[in-house]
Design a protein around this nucleic acid. Structure first.
Lengths: 263, 263
DNA sequence: TGGCGACTCCTTACTTCGTAAGCTAATATA
DNA sequence: TATATTAGCTTACGAAGTAAGGAGTCGCCA
């Protein structure tokens, strides 16, 4: 069961996240640091995926046994949360705060998407119960700042925040999955897809008659023009752009509506 | 590593999903059926979560050992996909096809959300690589039908489909997480939250000064008036409604724009 | 300054998981 | 009827998280 935040003692976990330095204590000097452990775990996760991050593997990477880590970190889930907060450091603050809200928000989402794609294992940590670490918080803060320029009330802004997170995380999951499957099965995603389609034609020969609207939905595929990645990745990225643009259109409409008759 | 579709032989998996009945074969008569196994697994998953669904546990529920299941199903991941497709049966087809697209789409999303909340373990199966079972397909078909009434081109419709899935799945994950945490920790989500807030105040006393926009974002909480569930569940549901409404506003704008100047 | 006690890190062991291997008994087809 | 093939069992392997306990190390107070 990975991905549930807040299972352990909240005080201990928050203390770790915010790097409260502990008072000097008796006993041998710690040879490791939480940061070193988290770094090693992130390297492992980036290279081999979250399943490659076992306590033993992380310990081994640091020249220790797996059990040695338990002096620094309550357990594996807590380590995951620490990793999660850490990579949010990469989300640099928005350049200038004087840009129009739409550009700022759209940029923010793109940067979050890029972060998730650099570290796909972050998608295993649920957005539901925020980890509430410093870097995650400051990422949220910069979005919150951008959204205040809309003039919308807090309740509406919360709706936008949730929608943005869902859109970004869903897209990231789709793209990451396509990549992972390609890596695991050893075949390109195009091969994977064509094999699957051939098998489907065999098993369900009347697919076109039974699901006509679905077939029409996938008609008219656009050529891959830009750098939106390999075969299966491209449609996900285009859908992301379109979905985001429609969502922001809706937000803009709400902004116009609200500035006409505020309150 | 749960949740990756299409790991096993695609032909075998599709044959299982679409219930191709195999030709009579030598050997003892099978005492079980795939359906019985899938049903047992779903009951277990609903009751104890996906972690309660081990091959041994499912076998035991059917009076067999875990290994007995491998005659029917290639492995655990495949079983998960079968479970996933099965519960999509609950997504009844949309009532009348003559309703306006917005109502039809909104209803569809609500029904999908309800399904995910009845079976939160479905969220472990990625939307990225569709399982392509019969029930999942017919759920997608009814959405595709509703979207054709918009008159939007396929590429735009695909964007809407993706956005809808992301919103629904993200919301479902949020709500499910709140429920799971309450069940696991034994404390109500209100207790969980207040403890966490207290701990945060201790560890980061200057939180309000450091993250003012975040604090303002969470200001002005609305009273829980309707049946949107317990404490932490309510904001997720309200955010869902607001987000969905803004998204559909954006779609409506695109519809208006497109019917003015099609092509 | 001596020693108490808390600490780090190790080894060992327990549990649970998915599933590979190989056995026996049952059965459709030649 | 002989044979090949299957279902379902037992056994076992490797990997996972982590509990338990011991050995050595150091801060703090008498």
């Amino acid at each position: 069961m990975t991905g549930y935040a807040g299972r352990s003692e909240p005080r201990r976990m928050l203390s770790l996240l915010w790097r409260e330095d502990p008072p000097p204590r008796p006993g041998p000097k710690p040879a490791l640091t939480v940061d070193a452990i988290v770094d090693a775990a992130i390297e492992l996760a980036d290279a081999r995926g979250m399943d490659g991050v076992s306590m033993r593997a992380v310990g081994e990477r640091l020249g220790r046994t797996g059990m040695a880590l338990y002096s620094y970190v309550p357990g594996r889930d807590s380590l995951t949360e620490l990793m999660y907060d850490r990579v949010h450091e990469e989300l640099a603050a928005a350049p200038g705060s004087s840009r129009p809200w739409r550009a700022a928000v759209s940029d923010w989402a793109d940067r979050l998407l890029a972060m998730h794609l650099r570290h796909p294992w972050t998608l295993r940590v649920s957005f539901a119960r925020p980890v509430m670490g410093p870097h995650e918080q400051s990422a949220l803060e910069s979005l919150a700042v951008a959204l205040e320029d809309t003039g919308l009330p807090p309740s509406s802004r919360r709706g936008v925040v949730a929608a943005l997170f869902h859109q970004v995380r869903g897209t990231a999951a789709t793209v990451a999955e396509a990549r992972a499957a390609a890596a695991v099965t050893g075949q390109t995603d195009r091969q994977w897809w064509s094999r699957r389609a051939a098998a489907l034609r065999q098993v369900v020969p009347d697919f076109v008659e039974r699901f006509p609207a679905t077939v029409r939905l996938h008609a008219d595929p656009e050529p891959v023009t830009e750098d939106d990645g390999p075969f299966l990745e491209a449609p996900a990225r285009r859908a992301y752009r379109r979905g985001m643009s429609m969502l922001l259109d809706g937000v803009a409409a709400a902004v116009a509506d609200h500035s006409e008759s505020p309150g």
